[in-house]
Amino acid sequence: MNTPLTPQSLPRRSFLYRKLAALGARFAAGNEAAIAASFGGTDEAAAAHNLGLADLSPLRRVGFKGPGAADWLVAQGLTVPEVNRCAAQADGARLFRLGANDLMITTDLGATATLPDKLSAAWAALENPPQSPRGFPMPRQEGFCWFVLTGRHAAAAMAKVCGVDLRPHRFPVGAIAQTSVARLSAVAARDDINGTLAFQLFADSASAEYWWDCILDAMQEFGGRPVGTEALRAL
């Protein structure tokens, strides 16, 4: 009965599923995909406190862009912060404002927030989306890979691959830096998890495997390692 879940047995896969499997991940199903829940080993939760990198690529996220996008999201009842800030929403979802009219909404770590799906449905139900509003949906689920870097050494590890000062006293909770991370155009947002320093990281999904390796390489010096979503939820 207890056959381990494999990424290939589900309709969607993380951009990294081969690497995650090679690292010994145990997968859990979510959003029609296998999410790396744990990598085993001793005390993964402690690793997440120290320095851990998790792949959240299969979790739901949507984007809306173009004139009217921000106003439309305000009309949908969302809290829309200023540019380059992220804000928690009522159900735990996060809204990342990447430009005046470039916004991305993600589910929460436990994937319980349904706001991305609700917004997709609301957009699809618009009678005439091209004109009212004049924006368009962005395929962030497919375009971006999504990692979370957690732990007390997270800022120091990021400093090796990113020119922007992400140290906690210079980069407050909710701040977003859109910059080059390991030579890739990326979004790095500070979104601490229960008081543990954490950065949500997004970059071009086509380079996900390269990026994962670069960040893990930068983490080695501080004893960092991959962690699963269970360790994040235990923070």
């Binding site: 540019v83 380059n84 430009g99 020119g163 922007v164 830096a177 859109q178 910059t179 080059s180 155009s185």
Partner: peptide, 17 residues
């Protein structure tokens, strides 16, 4: 390193532009 100030994102390495 040469720095350029982006009106939206602030000071960044000029290689990002």
């Amino acid at each position: 390193m040469k720095i350029m100030n982006c009106p939206m994102n602030g000071p960044r390495n000029v290689s990002e532009f």
